[in-house]
């Protein structure tokens, strides 16, 4: 509980600090205070329109969205690792993110580019299709961890190729830029609309997953022992797979496929508080939020004025960890 509160404090401080990072040009704490203060109805001197818009319409939603997406992806990772009994499970590595990308891109192509809800719906369908394909391919084979990740990577590759194909064949001038966005994940297009949608679905999704905490713990010893403990394994699996697909889809529709957050964060948090999900899940959410807020801030300023997609940085951090986990399990 103390750890959770502490991490929450760090998160709030990070949110504020990250708004400031990379603003430059004489814009500082004072301007941020005035922009946010004006929205809260405080008697502050209003900012010039351009600066205010930069802070309130671009920077603030971007930081909030990074926090929401980070929380959602971290919780998805933790839940999927338990459901598949596989330490390497993550929405990105299992190909769910790629499926969601394809779904969202199809919706864009059909002419609903402006509709966040439409893209999220498309991404959700895409995520479910890729997950169904994964389950189909793994049917009747044990959930051996290397096999599941290999299958996931293959499914992911398939959907990545589909996304590229669809975007390229659309012949749009922006298609290359859009491709980077969907495949690598970038916070640049963050707007208030996606913050609201992400906020609502993340809150609902996290609650559903958290309510499954004891079932997630009980799955540690496999389906038979879990059932004998009183867990309806089939229902729990279905609920969790659908919920994580939804959470992944909302995140992907807003910012593209960002990888490895679901791998890095839960593993770190387990070292801190152990594997019980009642504590692991909320803490993963908070740490995941903080993690992505800072990674995105880094992506913004590391090679300024050029902005690197945040997915590049999460992959740079995630790949070594992936190898460490494989090695620890003696599978490399």
């Amino acid at each position: 509980m103390v750890v959770l509160l502490l991490c929450l404090l760090v998160l709030v401080a990070s949110l504020v600090a990250a708004v400031r990072v990379g603003l430059g040009g004489g814009t500082g704490w004072d301007e941020i205070g005035r922009s946010v203060g004006a929205r809260l109805g405080l008697p502050v001197q209003p900012l010039p329109r351009l600066t205010d818009s930069l802070i309130w319409d671009l920077r603030v939603p971007r930081v909030l969205l990074a926090a929401l997406v980070g929380a959602a992806l971290a919780v998805c990772g933790a839940a999927l690792q338990s459901v598949t009994r596989n330490a390497l499970a993550d929405p990105y590595l299992l190909g769910v993110s790629s499926g969601a990308s394809t779904g969202a891109v199809v919706v864009v192509l059909l002419g609903f580019a402006g509709s966040q809800l439409g893209m999220t719906g498309g991404a959700f369908l895409g995520a479910l299709v890729s997950l169904a394909l994964l389950v189909l391919l793994l049917r009747r084979r044990g959930l051996d961890s290397v096999r599941i990740v290999l299958t996931g990577v293959v499914v992911g590759q398939l959907f990545t190729a589909l996304t590229s194909l669809i975007l390229m064949s659309s012949g749009d001038a922006d298609s290359t830029r859009a491709l980077t966005h969907w495949l690598l994940g970038s916070m640049a297009p963050a707007r208030w609309q996606s913050v609201v949608l992400c906020g609502i679905s993340a809150a609902a999704g996290l609650l559903v997953v958290w309510l499954c905490s004891s079932a997630l713990d009980g799955l540690a010893f496999g389906a038979d022992t879990a059932t004998s403990l009183g867990i309806d394994v089939r229902t729990v699996r279905t609920v969790l797979l659908v919920t994580t697909s939804l959470l992944t889809a909302v995140a992907v529709a807003a910012v593209g496929a960002i990888g490895f957050v679901g791998l890095i964060v839960p593993h770190g948090v387990r070292l801190l508080v152990g594997p019980l999900h009642r504590v692991l899940l909320p803490l993963s959410a908070v740490v995941g939020a903080t993690f992505l807020v800072w990674t995105d801030a880094l992506a913004r300023v590391a090679f300024a004025p050029l902005e690197v997609p945040v997915g590049v940085f999460t992959a740079l951090l995630g790949v070594p960890l992936f190898l460490v986990i494989l090695r620890k399990r003696g599978e490399l």
């Binding site: 004998s228 009183g230 387990r270 594997p275 019980l276």
Partner: peptide, 22 residues
């Protein structure tokens, strides 16, 4: 339901192992 059964009988498998750090 699984829950109702679990309140009546407990079962111990021959080898139930985990990768988890419980």
């Amino acid at each position: 339901s699984a829950r109702a059964r679990a309140r009546h009988v407990a079962f111990v498998e021959q080898t139930a192992d985990t990768d988890s750090d419980l």
